[in-house]
Amino acid sequence: MVSIHNLGFGYSKKKPVFEGLNLELQAGNVYGLLGRNGAGKSSLLRNIAGLLTPTSGQCTVNGHTPHLRQPKFLQELFFLPEELHIPPISMKEFVSVYAVFYPNFSQNQLTEYLKEFEVDSSARLTELSLGQKKKALISFALATNTPLLIMDEPTNGLDIPSKSQFRKIIASSITNERVILISTHQVRDLESLIDPIIIMDNREVLLNAGTDVIAEKLSFKTVQQVTNHEKVLYSEHSIRGFGIVIPNEDESYTKVDLELLFNAALEKPQVIKQLFN
């Protein structure tokens, strides 16, 4: 659905945010985009959404060129930025104004999500807490049923029960026609939800793979001692010993530990790239 070839982008010519970036997103998936601060996650999301114009290469979404921002493209996209714009009206009024722009909007879904999130839809949005605001807009975003839904750090500001509700709602709203792309730092919040995983660093995509492919190629273990050093891609000390990432050689599938995977990718970017390309 989203297809990016050789994409280059930079706010100034001397300092490109990314160069020659390639990425394909297939419908029916909840993609998790990981990367350290300043790795260009937000810039990538904004390029896909058409808020920024690529300096080179192509980016297409369902055949549309995002940066032209034509209504037919915008109807197929909902972008939930990290910093939300909240008009001083109630959720009911908000829906009465904005829902008409989205042809597949479903009032039933919205009601259901708002109920699950326990958001008061008659209160003024500006008077809600940050978490409530976020939940109101997440509910609306999901109810628009756009083929592409991009969320930048959606779990920031959500309390613990809300994070669980968020996972339930996302799990229920993904369909075969839809791509949900979530950028996050809070991998623990979404660990069992996001799949495939995209890791960005140093102006490029290091990895874009489903957790089954990752588990096939890499093992994530806790060991008392790190023995075969040359094979271990990454290890870190924890209370229970060492968390390690090593190539999977015995065909047993371990649970993909996103934090370990992310750290391994940053430490051995070339190895990770070779393994997954």
């Binding site: 799990a171 229920s172 069992s192 799949d195 089954d212």
Partner: peptide, 17 residues
């Protein structure tokens, strides 16, 4: 698949697997 995914808060593709 969807019901169980929602219940367990995991990706529906995982339940499918």
């Amino acid at each position: 698949v969807r019901e169980l995914a929602v219940q367990l808060e995991v990706n529906p593709n995982t339940v499918m697997r």
